[in-house]
């Protein structure tokens, strides 16, 4: 019966009632039951009564099942979906303030182009870069910028959407 289960990253998104305290119910569930949160994103949807919460968590299969069931049990959770595989698209965003010494500037701009990012602020000795992409892309960009000296970074969590069917494509 016992199988060794691998713990993997999962992106769960849920539609919830847009009411005070709902986020606290969701987050409280995670802390109260010792589930982990890698990242969290919340915002209103097109329907102002409904918000979308996206949580990235680490869990093996039985734990993931338990997390999903516990979330569905919350009265304010309308719908929940695991958006971890190819049937969904996932993106995150970061603002990265990187040291821009004269000898680095070209390299930074090259990377910015390569990663389809943007320089959105230029100061005397640093650039602030806006970048978005999936987790791997963000990791790669940050990895390449790190040696030049990242002064500050602000990252969002992951947001995700289910891919709509592609009829006739």
């Amino acid at each position: 019966m016992k199988r060794i289960m691998k713990s993997e990253k999962h992106t769960l998104t849920m539609l919830v009632d847009n009411e005070p305290g709902v986020l606290s119910r969701v987050v409280g569930l995670f802390s109260g039951r010792g589930f982990n949160i890698d990242s969290l994103c919340v915002a209103e949807t097109m329907d102002p009564k409904v918000s979308r919460i996206t949580i990235v968590t680490q869990a093996n299969q039985p734990l993931l099942e338990q997390i999903e069931k516990q979330l569905r049990k919350l009265i304010n959770v309308i719908k929940l979906r695991d958006m971890s595989d190819d049937s969904s698209v996932r993106r995150e965003m970061a603002l990265i303030c990187v040291q821009a010494r004269p000898e680095n500037r070209d390299e930074i701009l090259r990377l910015v182009n390569l990663f389809r990012a943007k320089v959105i602020d230029v100061a005397s000795n640093c650039y602030t870069i806006e970048a978005s992409g999936d987790e791997d892309k963000m990791k790669a960009l940050i990895g390449l910028l790190r040696p030049m000296g990242i002064k500050k970074i602000a990252r969002t969590g992951t947001v995700a959407l289910f891919r709509e069917p592609k009829r006739g494509i």
Partner: peptide, 14 residues
């Protein structure tokens, strides 16, 4: 009290 009892009620309301 709604905050305090969130984890020990089935649901609660203000």
């Amino acid at each position: 009290i709604v905050g305090i009892t969130r984890p020990c009620t089935k649901h609660n309301y203000l």
